[in-house]
């Protein structure tokens, strides 16, 4: 038995080594399945919880066009949540179970959405920085070893780069605007910069899941590599529109041909993950409340479906 397991694992890893994609019906080690469910559901929940901070500005968007763009963006994020839930379902777990895990705290979502959106510039900052950071991560996941996940990422990435441009456009417009607008934009930058860097997770030296995820090609680049990529592309974009990066230690490293950055506040990172971020409770209570308030609708739809089925069969 043990030996069969080992053979299975060896064959599986050889397949991955050769660059084959793993599909839902393929044999896979329990650890691989578990790792993917955890990662994909966390990703799906992030898309969905992320609708809340942006949704906070839907009724206050400052022009018809701005409102259209924001609503369409939030709708895209909801759509990403749907693809990812469906992709996770191919691993034999239902959306209901995944939502249950979210509500009991067993499943996580991206920490970034535990921060509040306090001004319209935050909508720009989220699109530009948060979606910008997500893209760096997700581009590398387009080649992840699990087929349905990698295909979902290809679709999602196209839309995310659109979001990033639209967010940047909001920031650029505000930086070209009145003194109040500039101050709002810089304030948003100051509040969102560090949490965006934290989106890539702990330093490689402290990252617990790294080993298996790399060998199984779920993860293709390390946290620090991805974070560096994000910083390097974003610093110049900030300069172009006159925003200051709130890091006094940030400077170009000629030898390494990339930016060195200051120390990330890991204490804050772990505190927010641990549940004491500014909005953790609000986000979760909102999701649970809406889910519970919708229960009668889902029950009614199910009852109606069952009746139709019954009269069809009768």
């Amino acid at each position: 038995m043990e030996q069969a397991q080992e053979t299975l694992l060896r064959e599986f890893e050889e397949k991955i080594e050769c660059g084959f994609a793993i599909e839902p019906k393929d044999k896979m080690p329990a650890g691989y399945r578990k790792h993917l469910i955890r990662q994909m559901s966390q990703h799906a929940h992030s898309e969905v919880i992320g609708m809340q901070p942006e949704g906070n500005w839907v009724t206050r968007a400052p022009s018809l066009r701005a409102k259209q763009i924001l609503l369409a963006k939030i709708q895209d994020e909801g759509g990403h949540g749907l693809y990812l839930y469906s992709a996770a379902e191919t691993l034999g777990v239902s959306r209901d179970e995944l939502i249950e895990q979210l509500h009991t705290g067993k499943a996580k979502y991206s920490n970034i959405f535990n921060y509040p959106t306090l001004s319209w510039a935050d909508i720009g900052a989220i699109g530009w920085l948060v979606d910008g950071a997500a893209i760096v991560n997700q581009v590398s996941l387009q080649r992840t070893s699990y087929g349905p996940y990698s295909r979902a990422m290809v679709r999602i990435c196209k839309e995310e780069s659109f979001h990033q441009r639209q967010g940047y456009e909001i920031m650029a417009k505000m930086m070209a605007g009145t003194a109040d607008q500039k101050a709002m934009a810089q304030d948003a930058m100051n509040r969102w910069w560090w949490p965006s860097l934290m989106m890539f997770g702990p330093h490689d030296s402290d990252s617990p899941h790294t080993g298996d995820a790399f060998r199984w090609k779920i993860k293709r680049h390390s946290n620090d590599e991805l974070r560096q990529k994000f910083i390097d592309k974003t610093v110049q974009q900030a300069e172009v529109i006159g925003l200051t990066i709130p890091d006094k230690d940030l400077k170009w490293n000629e030898a390494k041909q990339c930016y060195d950055h200051g120390e990330i506040n890991w204490e804050e990172f772990y505190r927010v993950i641990g549940g004491d971020g500014p909005c953790n409770k609000q986000r979760m209570e909102h999701h649970i409340r809406v889910h519970n308030e919708g229960a009668w609708v889902r029950e009614a739809a199910e009852a109606y479906r069952a009746k139709q089925q019954y009269s069809k069969n009768a």
Binding site: M51, V58, L82, Y85, V290, E293, A295, R298
Partner: peptide, 8 residues
């Protein structure tokens, strides 16, 4: 938006 009975 983000208040409906289910995602769809």
């Amino acid at each position: 938006c983000s208040n409906a009975p289910f995602l769809e």
